[in-house]
Design a protein around this nucleic acid. Structure first.
Length: 409
RNA sequence: GCCAGGGUAGGGUAGUGGUUAUCCUAGGGGACUGUGGAUCCCUUGACCCGGGUUCGAAUCUCGGCCCUGGCCCCA
């Protein structure tokens, strides 16, 4: 027997239908905001991803040399590819550009709850705008996408300029370490690190910042800063939209290319991998040969959303099985075509089983059985049996199709 | 890369060194060639892989693979 590759999953029909339904709701919502779907290759030149995220990520990617000797990689995320697409094809399109995507990505990591080697992301990018209104739109879209799924989540919004301001006296490498500690909320580790480097005052500021969840508290720590206005405006826009969010100036997203506003969302019941959304404003296009275009975007961990949703009711779409005797078979074929054309999910026997066995099968998979034997075929009528209630009636074909159609909607 | 716990028919399980590996469920067929769920009968189907110990291994042991969760990382 061949095993499924590690960290991958198979999806059976019930689960696939649930995934498609959620995905469809997200698409609908994104379109309402004027975003249009794009699709990029599942593998790209390796350099695309190392330009964005550094050489260090190669060990966690499905990277390989193809038969022409080119270094390529299965995509570990989609933002870089979407920005590459923008630079290649849409540089001169009217700004701003609103795009969304849904696709699978691959990372070579140790699987655990909510973490797989093949996983799906739903994301959006707003390219060519650098205002609080742009930040607000993207955050609202992210919020509405998550809301449309019905999960409970905690949305946190921050701004990297605040922390950069405080950390500016530090050398580059220390800055990165401090941000990692803050992201983990490891205040003890932070304290140890900063006192070693003789930055005691900074520790007080950072502690205060990580505990600040209102604009006043934040500005009390950071003082006057050119980006304060941006944050004030963003908050007033988010408040006007009436969404729930928490200000969290300690978000650092572990990334160097984010430029300003950053946001994340978390859900319950996911164990260690509880982050379901990450995003912010960034500049990437110039890395791929474009202008230095400001952008803002996010990605939703689709699989984690599905885990957070839990098991849903299987699809309620009702089905019909057409059961026939040999004498009714040709007419039954005709009837099945009519039903399908009318939009009814219709199955017919393909095993040559007895009528009794066909009915036994129908009772397991369908809500209604349509029975066609010699008598029905001669009169061009069909017998409809409601399998849950056990009632049946024989009707002329036209009338029966109408009946079934309305009965199964 | 590290740690813990796991792996017996499609699903769920019993089985701590000894006949032909247990039971439930599911699938196929039949009793029943125009009517399902009940019942009965027949049937399909498993010890994750490999080495070792042993007269004998599902069982003990080692390695690997995979699963679940945690750490690390998280673009």
């Amino acid at each position: 027997m061949i095993q499924r590759p590690r960290g991958t999953r198979d999806f059976l029909p019930d689960e696939m239908e649930a995934r498609r339904a959620v995905e469809g709701d997200m698409r609908t919502k994104a379109r309402q905001y004027g975003y249009r779907e794009v699709c990029t290759p599942e593998f790209e030149e390796l350099e695309l991803f190392t330009l964005r995220s550094g050489e260090g990520i190669v060990s966690e990617m499905y990277a390989f040399q193809d038969k022409g000797g080119r270094w390529v990689s299965l995509r570990p995320e989609m933002t870089a590819a979407v920005l590459r697409l923008y630079v290649n094809e849409a540089r001169v399109w009217p700004k701003p550009i609103r795009w969304f995507y849904f696709g699978d990505c691959f990372r070579y990591e140790r699987p655990q709850k909510g973490r797989y080697r093949q996983f799906w992301q739903f994301g959006a990018e707003l390219i060519g705008a650098d205002t609080a209104a742009a930040d607000a739109e993207v955050i609202l879209l992210a919020h509405d996408l998550l809301s449309s799924t019905g999960i409970q989540f905690d949305l946190q919004v921050g701004h990297l300029a605040l922390m950069r301001h405080i950390l500016s006296p530090l050398p580059d490498e220390s800055r990165r370490q401090v941000r990692a500690l803050l992201d983990k909320r490891d205040m003890a580790g932070l304290s140890r690190f900063l006192s070693e480097g003789d930055y005691g005052l900074m520790e007080d500021q950072l502690t205060a910042l990580s505990e600040a969840h209102t604009l006043e508290d934040i500005f009390a720590v950071t003082g006057d800063h050119p980006e304060n206005e941006r944050l004030i405006e963003l908050c007033s826009l988010l408040d006007a939209a009436g969404i729930d969010y928490t200000l969290n100036p300690a978000i650092s997203r572990g990334l160097d290319y984010y430029t300003g506003v950053v946001f994340e969302a978390f859900a319950e019941g996911l164990g260690a991998e509880n982050q379901i959304l990450g995003g912010g404003s960034y500049r990437l296009a110039h890395l791929f040969g474009g202008d230095d275009t400001p952008s803002c975007g996010f990605a939703i961990g689709f699989d984690r959303v599905m885990v957070a949703l839990g098991d849903r009711e299987p699809s309620s779409a009702r089905r019909v099985v057409v059961a026939s005797t040999p004498a009714g078979r040709l007419f039954a074929t005709e009837v099945a075509r009519l039903l399908r054309r009318a939009g009814v999910i219709t199955e017919m026997d393909v095993t040559g089983r007895s009528l009794s066995a066909q009915m036994a099968h129908a009772s397991k998979t369908a809500a209604f059985a349509v029975i066609i034997g010699q008598e029905e075929a001669q009169k061009r009528s069909i017998t409809i049996k409601d399998l849950s209630r056990g009632m049946q009636q024989t009707l002329p074909l036209d009338e029966a199709v109408r009946e079934l159609f309305s009965g199964t909607r």
